[in-house]
Design a protein around this nucleic acid. Structure first.
Length: 647
DNA sequence: CACTATGTTGAGTCT
DNA sequence: GAGACTCAACATAGT
């Protein structure tokens, strides 16, 4: 009997250490093994991927390719410029493949893609081997152990995990890699549609993912460069790769006090050079670091310290606790699929009438990636938040660090996420999640979505009255404002007294510091002096509006699958003057104002385009035209209900 | 059913 | 400067 001819399909498992899938491939004792990467249009065109994350991915691919070559000079990572769903069936024949092996991916999109690949393998008589390796436990096992429901708290995850069993011990990296077979290919390349290409903004030349043919510009299946892809140079200082992270980890683990007593809430979001946390998240995302390897290396140290009666930290705040949260979000996503990423049609999300709501395709019940501008003021606030020009230096420093470096501390993510949603702008968490998706080098769909739901008090968390101040929270960690001085350099000479609130500095202090505090962020310089904007709103006022809005939304108590959310009648339950696009009695699906964007769906209603801004917020002077809407509750009823249940 | 304790990561005031 | 307490208040698990 002839020996197996194996395709090892690398995806987000760009490592050789502790890879159950790679071990399974090598255990077949193949005659030939092709380590391949298929160029996926989802990543190139459809998902939001900034050039910093591209660079990090390319680093990881180059690193794993070098590691393969170190084990076998004839082999490397073969990058094929065609989507897996069209390429693989042709490859099965051309390279006489008997087995395809890959690591399980529970992301909603990846499940769809992999289902098609498995089907094409079945048709070709190719055996498929899929191994879980991305999480501590197989996320589908966790869901099963949790009765098919998403894990919504760390204790639920821990209890489900204990039912599934022990976290697998790490697997040694291979000592050798078989030869690849003949790599000549005489097949027709199918190029995917580039529509919609939402990453066009990152290119300054023609996109070259597919234009050089399957084997790339040199015909050698090389890892592409940013230049080949037409992408602008990355600005992040963080470099990817398995060997990079294993080196970093060696240093982290050598500090046993740090590793053994790590408590996430006590690490500073304002620390830079070095950062207060390990910065392992992007490596975990691309699979350059195995979470189980990381987990057991930490546990070794913690166990040793326990025996020696030295202090140790415990989940959820400890380092292993961070990995448990990651598994919690993965399992929640595994249970819910695409709907995990949106409020609409997701019963685990509370419905809150945020500004800038996502557009929804009623035929698929999915968000479209576009959104509705219910209020131009809110749109401007969103852009200013995104670009780091809110006039709140702490927020702006974080957003600029995110944009240029692609990584920000976990608590910094809290600060800006709270500010955009429930603790400042009252803008949809889905807008914020999209920006993070685009800019983070460690973007992990499950974790990003879950954390945005958490911070916006949409799911996982509900204590909306615990609100981060854009002034006090930063000051607690960094009184001198060194973090702001680095990332908002126009404020670098601002006196400490005013660094968090520069608009309060007298004009002579501003001049002395070489910066003028004025305007809305449009103007960057005047007469040779740098300009930094005034705050875009009064924070205490806006905080109060948000908390009242959250109270009202919680009291109404709708969820993403409530009939009123699905059909747009949710507006009847909200006062017209409640925060968000709440006017009228019938809106579009989800939080939308109108219902006119879906092909083939009858236009049932179009909300009045009256902007609410400028309308007095007192409920009593509602105009007669507005009171024509049928409302289940008036503001007075709601106010009564807000009082404490107990007198 | 009522009640209590707890939940990785708030802010402000007082001691 | 660290720690206790209060502010107003949500959801859930457990008793």
């Amino acid at each position: 009997m002839s020996k197996p001819r194996v395709l090892y399909w690398f995806r987000t498992d760009l490592r050789l250490h502790d890879s159950p899938a790679l071990k399974a491939a090598l255990d077949l004792q193949p005659e030939v093994l092709y380590p391949i990467w298929c160029w996926d249009p989802h990543y190139v065109y459809h998902a939001r991927v900034g050039n910093n994350r591209w660079q990090f991915l390319i680093d990881c691919m180059n690193d794993v390719s070098r590691s393969i070559t170190n084990l076998n000079p004839n082999s490397k990572l073969f990058v094929l410029r065609e989507p897996a769903v069209t390429l693989l069936s042709k490859l099965f024949t051309a390279w006489r493949i008997t087995h395809i092996v890959f690591e399980k991916d529970t992301d909603a999109y990846a499940r769809e893609r992999d289902k098609q690949v498995v089907e094409s393998a079945r048709k070709a008589g190719v055996e498929v081997i899929v191994k879980s390796g991305r999480t501590l436990w197989d996320s589908d096992d966790i869901v099963k152990a949790h009765n098919g429901k998403p894990t919504m708290s760390i204790s639920q995850l821990q209890s489900a995990g204990s039912k599934v069993g022990d976290i697998a011990l790490p697997i040694e990296p291979p000592k050798s890699i078989p030869n690849p077979g003949d790599t000549n290919l005489d097949i027709k390349q199918e190029r995917p549609s580039s529509e919609p290409d939402i990453n066009e903004q990152y290119r300054d030349a023609d996109e070259g993912s597919y234009s050089f043919g399957i084997a790339g510009p040199n015909g050698d299946y090389s890892v592409p460069t940013l230049k080949e892809l037409g992408l602008k140079a990355a600005t992040t200082p963080h470099r990817g790769g398995e060997s990079v992270v294993l080196g970093k980890l060696h240093i982290i683990l050598a500090d046993e006090d740090y590793t053994g007593t790590f408590e996430k809430p006590k690490t500073s979001p304002a620390a830079f050079e070095p950062q207060a946390t390990c910065l392992t998240s992007p490596y975990l995302h691309f699979g350059a670091l195995s979470c189980r390897y990381f987990y057991h290396r930490i546990e070794e140290i913690v166990e040793r310290r326990r025996k020696a009666k030295r202090p140790v930290s415990e989940p959820p705040t400890s380092l292993t606790g961070q990995l448990l949260f990651r598994d919690m979000y993965f399992a929640a996503q595994a249970a819910l699929g695409y709907s995990f990423g949106q409020t609409y049609n997701n019963d685990h999300c509370r419905f809150i009438p945020w500004h800038l709501p996502s557009r929804i395709d009623v035929s698929t019940k999915l968000i479209t990636g576009d959104y509705e501008v219910d209020d131009e003021v809110k749109q401007r606030e969103f852009i200013r938040w995104r670009e780091g020009k809110t006039g709140f230096p702490w927020i702006d420093a974080i957003m600029r660090q995110l944009k240029y470096e692609g990584w920000i501390h976990h608590l910094a993510r809290h600060a800006v996420a709270c500010f955009l949603t429930r603790g400042g702008c009252y803008i949809s968490w889905e807008r914020g999640a999209e920006v993070f998706e685009e800019w983070l080098i460690d973007h992990e769909a499950a974790c990003n979505i879950g954390n945005w739901q958490w911070l916006s008090c949409t799911a996982f968390y509900s204590q909306f009255y615990r609100c981060y101040s854009p002034i006090a929270f930063g000051r607690k960690w960094d009184d001198n404002g060194d973090f702001i001085r680095k990332y908002v350099p126009e404020l670098k000479d601002m006196p400490k007294k005013y660094i968090y609130e520069p608009h309060k500095a007298p004009v002579q202090d501003q001049k002395k510091a070489g910066v003028l505090i004025k305007g809305d962020g449009e103007e960057e310089e005047r007469d040779g002096t740098r300009v930094y904007p005034k705050p875009m709103f009064d924070f205490p006022t806006q905080r109060e509006i948000c908390i009242q809005g959250m109270k009202a939304a919680y009291h109404v108590g709708l969820r993403g699958k409530s009939p009123q959310v699905l059909d747009g009648t949710w507006k009847r339950l909200f006062d017209d003057h409640a925060e968000g696009p709440t006017e009228g009695g019938l809106g579009g699906p989800g939080g939308m104002m109108s219902f006119d964007n879906v092909d083939g769906i009858e236009i049932r209603h179009r909300a009045p385009a009256t902007p609410k801004r400028g309308v007095k917020r007192e409920a009593s002077d509602a105009s007669p035209s507005k009171s024509a809407h049928t409302r289940v509750r008036g503001q007075s009823t709601l106010d009564g209900a807000f009082r404490k249940k107990k007198p």
